[in-house]
Design a protein around this nucleic acid. Structure first.
Lengths: 203, 203
DNA sequence: GACGGCATTGGACCCAAGGTCAATTACAAC
DNA sequence: GTTGTAATTGACCTTGGGTCCAATGCCGTC
C-alpha cells in the first residue's frame, strides 16, 4: 500500500539546526522534509505518508505540544520525537505521557536520534498496519444491511440461529439467510475468523 | 479475589520525607508501607497485594531503576511513580519509556502525587484483572491432554473436524470426541467464546 | 499383573448450519 | 407505475457438530 520510503518531518524554528539535522539525516539515507514552524508542518505535511516527526518543543507560536494535540484531534497518529534546548522534567513527563517516542536534549546526540527515529518508524509502521486492517473491517461492516449488522453482533456473541431469531423477533430461516450473506460480505468462512475480525474492529 | 484496599509502597532513603509523605497519604485515606531502601522494599513487599510504588530514583545502593528492573525480571508488574530531587531529562525519559506512571520532582506537589497514584492504582487494577484472566485460561489449557491441545489450536484456527482429522492423521469421529472434551475443559460452549479465550492467552 | 489415564474408533442419533428454489411484503427512488 | 433493495418465509436436502454407549490398544504406576 504505502511502500514509499518513510519521511522524516523536521520542525525547528532555528534554521541552522534545521539544516544541520537535515544534512545528518539525509546522509544517513533518510528522506527529510524541514519546516520552520508548527503551522507550516501541519498545513503542508501529508498525513497519509509513512514516517515520523522530529519536533522542537520550544517553537514560537504553536509549540510542540500544539502539534501533538493537533495531530491527535485529527486522528493522525504520527509518532513524534521531541527535542528541547531548555526543557524541564514536568514538560518531559507530559510529552512522554502524551505518547512521544522520545524526548531529546539539544545538542542532539546523533546515535540517540537515529535510535529514536528507528523506533518511531517502527511504531508508525505498526500503527499504519493496524489502521489499515481496521479500516478494511469497518468498510466491510459498512456494506452490511442493518439486519445483517444485528445478526453479525449476535453471531460474534456466540448465539445460535434460533436464539438470534428470538432476539430479533423473527424465525430461524430468516436468520440463516442474513447470516449467510453477512459472512460472505465480511469475507470469512468460519465463526472463528469472524470473531477475530470483530476483535480488530472493536479494540 | 483481592478486595483488600490497595497499598502504597513508599521508598525513600530520607526518613523525613518518608514520614512526611506517609502522613500526607495516610491522611488522604491510603494504606502506606514505607521503606528506606530498594532492597528492603524488594524483600519485604507482597508482590501479590494490589497497589503501587512511589520511589525516589536517587537511592544509595540499588536505585529506582534497579527496583523497576527487579520487578520486571520477576514479572511483577507493579506500577511505579518516581520522585527525584536532582533528575535530568534523559533519566526522566528512560523511566517513562520503561513504563513509569509518572516522574515527579521534589518537593512533590500533593495534587500531582494524588493524581499519579490514582492513575497507578487504576493501572494496577487493570493489570491484575488481565493477569487473572490470563492465568485462568492458562490453567484450563494446562488441563488439556496433548491431543486435546492440538485440537484446540485447530478449532481456534477455524478448521473443520475433517480437516483437523486429516492434519492429525486420524478420523473425524476421534476429533469430535477430543473437541467435545476440550470445550468442556475450557469451560466454553461456542467457538466464538473459545476464540476469545485464545486471544486472552496469546496476546 | 492390575489399574487408570489417554488416544482411538464404531454406531446410532439429534440438532445446528447452510444452501436451493420459490415466493411475498414494504419502502424508497426514478 | 416500475424498479431495486431489504426483509421475510416455506419446504427440502446436505453437511457439520455434538452426545451417548461401547470397546480396544498403549503406557506408566503401584
Amino acid at each position: 500500500m504505502n511502500n514509499t520510503s518513510p519521511m522524516i518531518y523536521l520542525v525547528d524554528d532555528d534554521e541552522r539546526i534545521l539544516i544541520a539535522l537535515k544534512r545528518l539525516l539525509v546522509s544517513a539515507g533518510y528522506h527529510v522534509q524541514p519546516y520552520q514552524s508548527a503551522e507550516d508542518f501541519l498545513t503542508m505535511h501529508d498525513p497519509d505518508a509513512p514516517g515520523c516527526a522530529v519536533v522542537d518543543v520550544d517553537l514560537p507560536g504553536m509549540d510542540g505540544f500544539g502539534i501533538q494535540d493537533a495531530l491527535w484531534s485529527r486522528h493522525h497518529a504520527r509518532p513524534i520525537i521531541f527535542m528541547t534546548g531548555c526543557g524541564d522534567i514536568p514538560t518531559t513527563v507530559r510529552a512522554m505521557k502524551a505518547g512521544a517516542v522520545d524526548f531529546l536534549t539539544k545538542p542532539v546526540d546523533a546515535a540517540s536520534l537515529f535510535a529514536a527515529i528507528e523506533q518511531a518508524l517502527k511504531r508508525d509502521q505498526d500503527g499504519r498496519q493496524k489502521a489499515l486492517q481496521r479500516r478494511l473491517v469497518e468498510q466491510r461492516l459498512a456494506s452490511l444491511t442493518p439486519r445483517e449488522r444485528e445478526v453479525f453482533g449476535c453471531v460474534v456473541a456466540g448465539q445460535l440461529n434460533k436464539q438470534i431469531a428470538a432476539e430479533l423477533g423473527t424465525v430461524e430461516k430468516t436468520i440463516k439467510v442474513h447470516r449467510g450473506r453477512m459472512m460472505e460480505k465480511m469475507c470469512v468462512r468460519t465463526v472463528a475468523d469472524l470473531v477475530r475480525l470483530a476483535a480488530v474492529a472493536e479494540v
